[in-house]
Simulated assay, not measured.
Amino acid sequence: MGEKYVDAMPLAAALLRRPTVLMRHEVMAGLAAAGYADILPAHLGVFQHPGPDGMRPGVLATRTYASKQAMNHLLHQLEEGGYLVRETASGDRRTRIVRLTERGWDAAGVIQQTMLDVDKAWEGALGEETYRELRHGLERLEGVLDTVRL
């Protein structure tokens, strides 16, 4: 078997779970309160940073670890709800890109504001320096996630 892990502090990957669950809950509550109750938790992957506007559906599928079929299903639902349109890319009639509608930009604004509110609370709880270090560490991790083998 493997070595027994003896460090008393939980692993970083385990510690990321609760903040992620909390953030998703807060974003969903914020969207519902703002009148976007038809956005489902599964749709949040489409709206993840840096957002879907101008991206190809296949790129969105890769970013969310979803199949292309699953992503197209989510995009269809969001298109039906008036949040986005899929249009032909200029210069390549075979390539489609996602464009947010005004309703989509408004929903993305609610998501962004909710995240800012939560971030501000976390900064208050951790203190400015620790919060800044946390953000820098997570940003560095984001930069290497595609190269890390699981």
Rank of each mutant, 00 (worst) to 15 (best):
H25V: 07
M28Y: 01
M28C: 07
A32W: 03
A32R: 04
A34F: 02
G35V: 01
G35I: 01
Y36A: 05
Y36T: 00
Y36H: 07
A37T: 12
D38N: 09
L40G: 06
P41N: 04
A42S: 13
H43C: 10
H43K: 08
H43E: 02
H43I: 04
V46L: 06
F47C: 10
H49I: 08
H49G: 09
P50H: 05
P50R: 08
D53H: 09
D53G: 10
G54A: 04
M55C: 12
R56F: 09
R56Q: 15
P57T: 00
G58F: 02
L60E: 05
T62F: 11
R63D: 11
R63P: 11
T64R: 13
Y65A: 15
A66K: 10
K68Q: 14
A70T: 13
L74Q: 12
L75E: 04
L75I: 06
L75W: 02
L75C: 11
G82D: 08
Y83N: 15
V85I: 06
V85D: 09
R86I: 02
E87L: 02
E87F: 00
D92Y: 01
D92E: 03
R93W: 00
R94N: 15
R94Q: 15
T95D: 13
R96M: 15
I97H: 06
V98E: 14
R99L: 13
R99A: 11
L100F: 11
R103V: 08
G104Q: 06
